[in-house]
């Protein structure tokens, strides 16, 4: 995201989207405490839960990527290192978001 305004807008919108999802996740953790493997697995195979978990991971990784980029731009002054660090963070975000989606889909089907 080269455009600073778009960057900032996405940072704010993703934050808006994550907050209700995080509340739902913390609530789910409280409800699910001490549950067995089968119960946890069943929770993930519910389409409603799977959809919102996937949404949470995708939006969170977007928010993470944008947030870390700002921090890197503030503290890494060497431009070569800066772009390399941002690139590796982006790649890591895509990989981990991919793993999350793959796992959720595995449990859904």
């Amino acid at each position: 995201m080269k455009n600073v305004v778009t960057h900032r807008k996405f940072q704010r919108y993703s934050a808006l989207a994550i907050s209700p999802l995080s509340i739902w996740i913390v609530y789910s953790i409280i409800c699910m405490k001490g549950s067995s493997f089968q119960e946890t697995y069943n929770w993930f195979s519910n389409p409603f839960n799977a959809f919102f978990m996937a949404a949470f991971f995708i939006i969170s990784f977007l928010h993470l990527k944008l947030g870390l980029q700002i921090i890197i731009e503030d503290y890494v002054h060497n431009l070569k290192h800066r772009s390399l660090t941002i690139l590796s963070i982006n790649i890591a975000c895509y990989i981990f978001a991919g793993i999350a989606i793959f796992s959720i889909l595995t449990m859904l089907f």
Binding site: F37, T40, Y41, F44, M53, F57, F96, A97, I99, A100, F102, S103, I104, T106, M107
Partner: peptide, 8 residues
């Protein structure tokens, strides 16, 4: 993410 992966 690792937790979800391990559950799957």
């Amino acid at each position: 993410v690792i937790f979800v992966f391990f559950t799957a």
